[in-house]
């Protein structure tokens, strides 16, 4: 049973008046994460919109100690902080509960540039939580292609649409044999809250990926952020699942789609509402392009359904 909205705690870790765009999904998701983690945490950020929008000295938008690190070092820096905190506790210089060390990193710092350090941290099983807020492009620098960009999507470096499908990063992290992996999105805050609370209680490396529809990069209207996130889940383009000790279970409403109780919505509506896809769908090959996008989604659902059957 997911936590209802009225049961969420009152504490705010993202303060009003930060520098992000109106309707930005990053502070939207970080507010829910903050409610689950509480004030006793240390936040690490690599270059991303979350750093650009944290405000001007002497003001800071996030109500945690924040450390800005190099783009490629999210995994290794967080490992170091987690070790340091444990040693301080051993020496008696830190009283009370250990703070949670977590990364708040975009898809560039996770899928591409930060992958090596993250993979190493996962292999060492250091006691950190890595959050990837995935907006499927390098939106901070003006929307360039990343490893998370889906097939057929327009970016400034793929003006004719990306030709390759995206990586399944959450599954890659699962294959590192870490204790907890989950995917979430901003439209389902109760689901996200439960996953973060669970991740906080498990020792070792945890990975949570949050789909964050960026209205500027995806080219839809500003008020539709939450709606776009919901449509991604209902069309099957984004699957909500979690894996504890390698055992995958799907969350509602993705569980209905994967188990075949309910058909996924056709991808057309989701695609046509986003400028990054529909600006390339005016030519004669539009039907073929949509079929390609639908094919990637169907393949991913079929693959994850079979992968979830492996429970050893």
């Amino acid at each position: 049973m997911t936590t209802s909205i009225k049961q969420l705690p009152d504490n705010e870790q993202v303060l009003s008046g930060n520098g992000s765009c109106g309707g930005c999904p990053s502070p939207m998701a970080l507010r829910i994460v903050g409610k689950a983690l509480g004030p006793n945490a240390i936040m690490l950020l690599t270059p991303s919109c979350a750093v650009a929008s944290m405000g001007m000295t002497p003001r800071l938008a996030y109500n945690w100690p924040c450390i800005n690190v190099c783009f490629a070092t999210a995994g290794s820096s967080a490992s170091g902080i987690a070790q340091a905190v444990e040693i301080l506790k051993e020496k008696g210089r830190l009283q009370g509960e250990l703070p949670t060390v977590f990364n708040w990193v975009g898809d560039g710092g996770t899928y591409d540039i930060g992958f090596q350090a993250l993979s190493a941290a996962a292999e060492r099983n250091d006691n950190i939580i890595h959050f990837c807020y995935n907006n499927e492009a390098y939106s901070n620098t003006g929307v360039q292609r990343s490893g998370a960009t889906p097939r057929g999507s327009f970016t400034t470096t793929t003006p004719g649409g990306k030709r390759q499908p995206k990586k399944n990063m959450a599954l890659l992290m699962l294959e590192h044999d870490i204790p907890y992996v989950a995917t979430a999105t901003v439209a389902y805050p109760g689901d996200l809250y439960d996953k973060v609370v669970k991740a906080k209680s498990i020792p070792g490396m945890k990975y949570i990926e949050i789909l964050a529809p960026c209205y500027l990069g995806w080219q839809f209207d500003m008020p539709d952020t939450v709606q776009m996130s919901r449509m991604a889940v209902r069309s099957g383009a984004w699957l909500l699942w979690e894996a504890e000790n390698g055992k995958i279970s799907f969350n509602n409403p993705s569980s209905f789609i994967v188990s075949g109780i309910k058909d996924a919505d056709p991808v057309d509506e989701y695609v046509m509402k986003q400028g990054r896809f529909n600006r390339l769908l005016k030519g004669p090959d539009a039907a073929q392009r949509i079929a390609e996008i639908q094919g990637d989604i169907d393949r991913q659902i079929a693959f994850m359904r079979e992968r979830a059957k492996i429970t050893i």
Partner: peptide
């Protein structure tokens, strides 16, 4: 030159 959590950082 250290930032503190405050409203209106932007």
């Amino acid at each position: 030159p250290i930032s503190w959590p405050m409203k209106g950082s932007g």
